[in-house]
């Protein structure tokens, strides 16, 4: 078996407070978004106001549907930096703590001195990441459901599933390079600087590239390009291509992190 149950339970014990914090934050955030939707007036007047916004802003926010339609407003919530921060904090905290800090402090030796292969060790950490990501995604959906219910917004819940799944795929890519950096790093501070710098850099790069035609071609290598909640909510259905690209990129990073972790001195 490639997963170590005792080690999984130990990670859970360690990560539980963080997971609860992420879940509560996302639920509160979704409630806040739905409260704003419920208390806003989506009239022709407000649409006029939207059209007065700078074109770059409108493009970034999503031009496939009316911005201030209730659904468009909810879609904005998924690209909010708050959501990205919560989702990105999970892999950074998990891999940073369970791989880099454990190595820095030497506690990794207390696990790897037992009959546990490095593959099992990293596979268990990865499995925890996938489970945690699913848990956070479900909590976000729960927040949406709660928001729809509490503020009496009439939308079927299932239309949000593709958005949350696509968001999880985005964070498989981000989690993948976070894992790769963690598996190769020697110091937590340097690794976290790199992870945060890369994620924030890619986020801003997507904004810049989507507004400057000359560099528009760069968007295809940016994971944020493959997450378009407004489009999904506007058109319906699952963005299979985007999800496949994000998952594929994540798997490449994960495979490389396995290779590096197995080869390195700890």
């Amino acid at each position: 078996m490639l997963i170590s149950i005792p080690y999984f339970k130990m990670i859970l014990r360690d990560q539980r407070p963080f997971l609860i914090t992420y879940a509560v934050s996302l639920i509160l955030f979704e409630l806040m978004v739905h409260w704003l939707v419920a208390s806003s007036e989506f009239s022709a007047q407000s649409m006029k106001l939207v059209h007065m916004l700078p074109p770059a802003f409108k493009k970034f926010m999503g031009e496939n549907m009316g911005l201030l339609s209730p659904l468009g407003f909810v879609a904005l919530g998924y690209t909010h930096p708050m959501v990205y921060t919560i989702f990105a904090a999970f892999p950074a905290g998990l891999f940073g703590r369970e791989i880099i800090t454990a190595r820095e402090k030497g506690t990794i030796e207390l696990t790897l001195c037992r009959p546990l292969s490095r593959t099992e060790f990293i596979m268990t950490t990865l499995f925890f990441f996938i489970c945690g990501l699913i848990f956070i995604g479900i909590m976000q959906i729960f927040g949406v459901w709660l928001g729809l219910l509490v503020f009496r917004i009439e939308h079927p819940l299932y239309i949000f599933f593709p958005v949350v799944i696509n968001l999880c795929c985005l964070f498989i890519t981000i989690g993948g390079y976070t894992m790769l950096i963690s598996a190769s790093a020697k110091e937590l501070s340097k690794a976290l600087t790199l992870i945060i710098g890369l994620t924030v850099g890619l986020y801003f790069l997507e904004f810049i590239c989507s507004n400057i035609e000359a560099v528009d071609f760069l968007r295809i290598v940016n994971p944020f390009y493959y997450f378009k909640p407004q489009k999904i909510l506007g058109n319906g259905g699952y963005p299979w291509r985007d999800m496949a690209v994000l998952t594929g990129a994540g798997l490449i990073f994960i495979a490389d992190s396995f290779r590096r972790f197995r080869r390195r001195d700890i």
Binding site: M10, D14, K105, G106, T107, E109, L110, C113, R114, P115, L116
Partner: peptide, 14 residues
């Protein structure tokens, strides 16, 4: 390692 009991130097515990 199944039959080994190991204690590291400079022990740090979780």
């Amino acid at each position: 390692k199944r039959e080994i009991g190991y204690l590291p130097g400079e022990l740090r515990l979780p």
